[in-house]
Nucleic acid binder design. Structure first.
Lengths: 211, 211
DNA sequence: TAGATTGTTAATCGATTAACAATC
DNA sequence: TAGATTGTTAATCGATTAACAATC
C-alpha cells in the first residue's frame, strides 16, 4: 500500500462501492475480473478503476486482470475493515434503535459496545444484547472502555456540546445522524454525516427536473 | 429561474445545505447576508456560492447581498419543496418504521400516503396515523392514489423486481435504503441512495488514516 | 509467441477560485 | 458620491478519460 495520505475524497467514496461489487462477484463464484468488465458492471470507466487502485498499490496482473477475492481483501484493508474500532451509540429513539438493530457494524470495521440515552425510562432496556445506559455514566464508561467512535442519533442542539465532551474523552470520529455540521466545529475529528433531509431534498430536485 | 437542465451534481448536492443554513440564519433573526459571510459560515468560498446561485438566476443585489428569507424561498422552489409529491414506503421493519416516524417528509417536498409490508402480521398496525397495508394491495393502491415516489426499506434481493413493478405503476423515483444499485438498472428513474454501509466504511477509512 | 490487460503518462474535461466591471 | 457586493468572465486547479509501453 502506497500513498496513504492525500487521497482525494472522490476516490475514497468509491472504495466501499468497489468493495460491495467485488463481494457480490465473489459470492456469485467469479474469481477473476478485468477493469473493463468491472467498469461495465459498475457504470464506470476502466481507466478510472485503474487510476483509483493505483493510489494504493498494484493489485492486478498484466494480461490477466484482478483476482476478485484478493482485490476485495486489499480494499477491505485500505478501508480499515480488518481492525474493529470500538463504537458507542447515543440517542436510543426510533432512529438510534433502528441503527442498532439494522446496521452490521462488524462487517464495516466497527464493534458497537455501548448504548446511551438521557431518558431514564430507557435505562436497562436491552437492544441487540446491549443494555441502554443512562447518559450520566458516559464519562466513566469511556474512560474504562476507550471507544474511538460515537454514533450520534440525537437532536441538533445536543450534538455540539456532546461532541466536545466525547472528544475530551478520546473519541476521534462521529457517525453523525444529527442535523448539525460537526465537521466545521471539530476540524480534527473524523466526521461522516448521514443527512436524511439533504438526501430527500436532492430526490425532490431530481423529480422536479426529470427530463 | 434559468437553466433548469444540465446543472452539475456537485451544485445540486450543495443546495439542501444552503437551504439549511439560510433557514438557520432566518430563525436567528438574520435578514440579510453577503456571499462572503455565508461562505465563512459554511466553510466554502464566496465565489462558489455566487457561481452556484447563478446557475438558477440572479437572487442578490449589488452592494447589498442577499435577503435571507427570499433566497431560502427561492432555493426551496428550485428544490421543488413547494409542491408535495406523494410517496409510499415499502418495508416496515426496524428501518422502515424509524424512517416513517423520524423523517419530516412534508418539509422536504413529500407527503407520505401509504405503508406496505409483505408480513401479514403487520397489516393494520398504525404508524404516524398511517395503517400498514399488505403488499398484495400495492397495485390497486397505486392505481387509485398515483404515488410518484417509493421509499424502499427492503432487502436487496427484493428491490429490483419491486422497482420494476412500481415503475410500471407510474412511480418515477426511489429513496433507496436497500443495498442495491437501482440507478444502473432503471436509468430513467430518479434514484437517491442511502447506503449506510458505504457511509460507515468511509468513516472507517477516515479513522484509519487520521493524521 | 500472440493476445490481453495492466500500470502510468499525457490529454481532456469540468469544477473551483480569482478577478473585475457593473451597479445598487 | 463612495463603498460594498453582486453577476460574470477568465485563470487555475483537480479529476476523469484516453493512450500506450510494459509485461504477464
Amino acid at each position: 500500500m502506497r500513498n496513504q495520505a492525500g487521497i482525494s475524497d472522490s476516490v475514497i467514496r468509491r472504495l466501499p462501492r468497489y468493495y460491495r461489487f467485488l463481494d457480490d462477484l465473489r459470492s456469485s463464484g467469479v474469481t477473476r475480473i478485468s477493469s473493463r468488465e468491472l467498469a461495465a458492471r459498475m457504470g464506470l470507466t476502466a481507466s478510472q478503476i485503474r487510476q483509483d487502485l493505483n493510489c494504493f498499490g498494484e493489485f492486478g496482473q498484466q494480461g490477466y486482470g484482478y483476482q476478485v477475492e484478493q482485490l476485495k481483501t486489499e480494499i477491505g484493508k485500505i478501508l480499515g475493515l480488518d481492525s474493529l474500532k470500538k463504537a458507542i451509540l447515543i440517542g436510543v429513539g426510533n432512529l438510534g434503535r433502528a441503527v442498532t438493530q439494522h446496521i452490521r457494524f462488524e462487517t464495516r470495521g466497527f464493534q458497537l459496545i455501548g448504548l446511551f440515552d438521557q431518558k431514564e425510562s430507557l435505562t436497562g432496556q436491552v437492544i441487540r444484547s446491549l443494555p441502554v445506559r443512562h447518559i450520566s455514566g458516559l464519562d466513566e464508561f469511556c474512560r474504562e472502555n476507550r471507544p474511538e467512535v460515537a454514533v450520534l442519533c440525537i437532536p441538533r442542539e445536543a450534538a455540539e456540546p456532546l461532541a466536545a465532551q466525547l472528544i475530551a474523552l478520546g473519541v476521534k470520529g462521529f457517525w453523525n445522524f444529527s442535523h448539525s455540521d460537526l465537521a466545521l466545529r471539530f476540524p480534527g475529528a473524523a466526521v461522516e454525516n448521514v443527512h436524511f433531509g439533504d438526501s430527500l431534498m436532492t430526490l425532490s430536485y431530481q423529480l422536479t427536473n426529470l427530463p
